[in-house]
Design a protein around this nucleic acid. Structure first.
Length: 421
DNA sequence: CATACGTGGGC
DNA sequence: TGCCCAAGTAT
């Protein structure tokens, strides 16, 4: 593999989910111990040693910084921690290590950027200060607090997990193994919460760490492949500081977010530049391998803004729908050239009697591999007893919007509707 | 392992 | 505009 002495990382003998490998330590290499209690399968090379604080069997793993001349993994950990200490951003969830807040932040940060999360995090913790408050709140209210943040399943799963925690006699789950049993908590989030809130020595491998390590090792292979992921995971473990795992993990992610960015990384300011193979080769941007993307299909939808007094008509999506389950949406039908055809479609779907008038407002709404272009119509709707059976309707005002679970697009349209009348 | 899930920002 | 990416998880 790599010529730079990291051959242990993806050795062919990797069999378990943990890719630590014990290597013959040269005279200058450092051996570090990592206790990893979130292991379901026995580690193929580690030795079982004692118990963690939560009673789970710990596996002792020897992580060897393989023959990097005079450099050692310890140096890298220290450089990283020192850099983080002086350069870390002040973020609201960094003010406390209290597990609930850490957990909320980690869920919100899944596939979501920091600046997007900040206001949601603040208002969410104001509304639901403790896990008990969250558990006791109606799901509707939790979804409303999540409105516009996306991936709404996260809110449902968090609410469900909060109930599990509140009903449990054991308090907040305190190990990555336990945390991973919660809905919405996968390997990354479990490791992040366990290390930050509980000091568990477990590495995280998120998109940032993946990129940082792919560059550090100049690993060109596709990170989707499990062998490559293992190598990256092992590399992340090798720079993990076992005294301050939470800070260490955050440091690596912060590095990826601010210095080792996808585009135009600022290698000059990187605490690991001496250790980075891609930087030495002068082509950091070429790692990791670009992921293939499916082409986006585009659909066009007509949505109707129907006003009564100062309120707008919304309908509730079915709980069982895969897309934005239970969220309130504007009435919509596939776009057609004829307003009459669309009016008929609205009537078929929602009942009532419709009159429509096209405005020139178009809002894009993307869902992974689809893009919906929303053509907004001002409409009149006369309900009778002909409103579609089993479909929940609501008239909401701009002020009441905060109490309803709506997508970002609906939020924007409701926000700007006043100017259209 | 591939796919779907929301959204906002950068270039 | 269009494409890429972002503190992932569940199926």
């Amino acid at each position: 593999m790599c010529a730079r002495g990291v051959s242990w990382l993806a050795s062919p003998s990797v069999t378990g989910s943990e890719s630590y490998h014990r290597t013959r330590g040269g005279p200058e290499s450092m051996v570090r111990r990592v206790f990893y209690s979130g292991v379901d399968r026995p580690n193929p090379v580690g030795r079982s040693r004692g118990q963690t604080r939560d009673g789970y069997e710990a596996v002792e793993l020897l992580v060897n910084d393989a023959a990097r001349g005079s450099r050692s993994a310890m140096d890298e950990s220290e450089k990283l921690l020192r850099w983080f200490e002086s350069q870390k951003r002040l973020l609201p969830w960094r003010e406390s290590r209290e597990p609930y807040g850490v957990w909320v932040s980690e869920i919100m940060l899944q596939q979501t950027q920091v600046q997007t999360v900040i206001p949601y995090y603040l208002s969410f913790l104001r509304q639901f200060p403790t896990v008990e408050d969250l558990a006791a709140a109606p799901l509707e209210q939790v979804l409303a607090a999540w409105s516009g943040l996306g991936y709404y399943r996260r809110a449902r799963q968090m609410h469900s997990a909060a109930k599990m925690i509140a009903e449990s006699l054991d308090g907040f789950p305190s190990s990555s193994r336990e945390l991973e049993r919660l809905p919405g908590v996968g390997p990354y989030t479990a490791a992040a919460v366990a290390s930050i809130a509980f000091g568990e020595v477990v590495p995280v491998l998120d998109g940032n760490v993946e990129r940082v390590m792919a560059r550090r090792l100049a690993l060109a292979e596709d990170p989707k492949q499990s062998a490559v992921r293992k190598a990256l995971f092992g590399a992340a473990a090798s720079v993990l500081d076992s005294e301050q795992p939470g800070e260490s993990n955050q440091a690596l992610m912060e590095l990826g977010a601010t210095i080792c960015r996808p585009k135009r990384p600022v290698c000059d300011e990187c605490p690991l530049k001496q250790d980075c193979l891609a930087q030495q080769q002068g082509n950091p941007e070429s790692f990791p391998a670009p992921r293939r993307r499916r082409t986006i299909e585009r659909f066009e939808l007509a949505v109707a803004v129907v006003r009564r007094d100062s309120s707008i008509l919304l309908f509730r999506r079915p709980e069982e729908s895969a897309l934005m389950a239970g969220m309130w949406e504007l009435p919509n039908v596939p776009l057609s050239r004829s307003v009459e055809v669309m009016a008929g479609a609205f009537e078929g779907k929602y009942g009532g009697c419709w009159k429509l008038e096209l405005t020139d407002t178009i809002i894009n709404h993307r869902i992974t591999y689809r893009a919906l272009r929303l053509h907004v119509h001002l409409g009149e709707f006369k309900a009778g007893h002909s409103v579609a059976e089993g479909l929940e309707a609501a008239w909401i005002s701009r002020e009441e919007q905060v109490e309803y679970a709506v997508s970002s697009a609906v939020g924007k349209i409701v926000a700007s509707c006043c100017s259209w009348y």
